[in-house]
Nucleic acid binder design. Sequence first.
DNA 1: GCAGGAAGTTTGTCCAGAACAAAATTACGA
DNA 2: TCGTAATTTTGTTCTGGACAAACTTCCTGC
Lengths: 302, 302
Amino acid sequence: MNNPRFNIAAVERDTGLSKDVLRVWERRYGFPVPGRDDHGERIYPAEQVERLRLVKRLMDAGHRPGKLLATPIDELNALAPRRPEPPGAASGAGVAAELGDLMSLIKQHDSVAYQQAMQQRLARQGLERFVQDTVAPFTRLVGAAWEEGSIEVFEEHLFTELTKRLLRQAIATLPGGKRSPCIVLTSVPDEPHVLGLLMAEALFALEGAECIPLGTQMPLLEIARAAAAHRADIVALSFSVAFPKRQIPGLLQQLRAVLPMGVALWAGGGGVKRLPEVTGVELLASLEHSLVALEAWRRTQA
Amino acid sequence: MNNPRFNIAAVERDTGLSKDVLRVWERRYGFPVPGRDDHGERIYPAEQVERLRLVKRLMDAGHRPGKLLATPIDELNALAPRRPEPPGAASGAGVAAELGDLMSLIKQHDSVAYQQAMQQRLARQGLERFVQDTVAPFTRLVGAAWEEGSIEVFEEHLFTELTKRLLRQAIATLPGGKRSPCIVLTSVPDEPHVLGLLMAEALFALEGAECIPLGTQMPLLEIARAAAAHRADIVALSFSVAFPKRQIPGLLQQLRAVLPMGVALWAGGGGVKRLPEVTGVELLASLEHSLVALEAWRRTQA
DNA sequence: GCAGGAAGTTTGTCCAGAACAAAATTACGA
DNA sequence: TCGTAATTTTGTTCTGGACAAACTTCCTGC
């Protein structure tokens, strides 16, 4: 029963590699080598899809496809994926252990205990530190577990859903009143990840900004219309690490071109790390940078 | 400044029409007719992108591309989208007027006033009637406006985002304690709409059920795993009207086959109306039916 | 020894036109 | 009038070639 047949569209969906790329890799590097169905269309075995996901992950980490696909030794591949530990040494081993505790709650599917633990941390740390020291690193941890396959899909979904709720709830309790600047938060089409946006929204709202959350996957022209309609000062986009890096500069340039002048364009998230500058666009390498950018924006307006 | 050059990838992003479809339409129907750049690649003028978006919207409303692209009279196209008003006469004119007020708040992009108005209604009606008498009909109203083009995409996104927050917040404030039955709520791949799930979750939680919200777009096998891991009594799926009806029976049968025996499978949302029965699956034609089903389930367990 | 530019390689995207199956519609027969 | 069969419509996939942008490597001159 458990032998799903992946056609090329399914592989594109599961790996994030476009159909064109899948076909050209097959031609150039001899991998993947899908079978064919009755009509001559490609059928990918689950094993190859798995390997493609590994390759994609290593590429996101900076490796080049030619090399990866030329090493037929799967063992070698399996050795590679240790990712450089993010510089968390400063916080000591305690933090990692605490995050590990949260992870085990997720893996025990104990949503009640997980929510309680997170609520406690929120109360103890305050929203700003909660976002920066708990949600962000734990999201990275879950992402890493997801990529190395040590977490079930439904576990990851549950984590995302519960964390979304926590953040939204925390944001809703922030005081209202006259707020500035006005920041439109959203993501481009094909970028469905929303946690990064919520983290940014929490920090911006804490700093007194007025946030317009438009959800994910807005067409570029609509983003521009929304910015004009809301008289936004800033448009903030989020790109996850999974988003095809190559497309980002072009996207930002296009959006910059259709955005009203005077509206700043900020882009953040794991996808914009190690990305070349784009004129007229502020690239935010981390959540901390977002706050710095906000402060800088305020100075320029003063 | 505002003369962006749309290449085929940009048009795919903004219209949701794949590159292959854009090329084959050009060949078959003679539209769109993009120019070419120095390298012979397609460059779409903004005007044609706009028309493509109109065509896509009309297709989502049930029209066929061959007809739409054969009518060169743009005026005729602009006239088409009127749809028959749904039978809302039963609720009287007052309700429609109140919903109209909410709609104007959305169209004025006044998210603060919209949230206040919704909060007021929630307090006045209580969660159950709020969901059934406000959120559900207003969602239908927004859907209708979307199909006839009288609402901007970003306005619809903002409505969805704000309403999601309201519902999640309301759900979070419900008391905890020993709850039963355990209901897993999610949607299948390619079904990203979450509002229906949230409405159902609110009603179920009110009735004392334990809800496991997994978000949207869960692969079928993962749904089965989640149900087993959480020892769920019921799996509840939501299908929006936009979901291809034809695929639903097969999907439900497949999921029924992999679900543990003893776990009930419920399917609701606009997509399951006027759908043939599927053995072992409970089709919920409306939110009220969900509550009836829950009561019935409880009787069978007593 | 190394900065920096030239030459070469890698790699993703695009193109054309054909083919075909799934979906939708129409035609037909009971 | 209803259900089934034929037909049209429509989206997806195929092949194999081309090319530019990004990245490496090599080379030259200080």
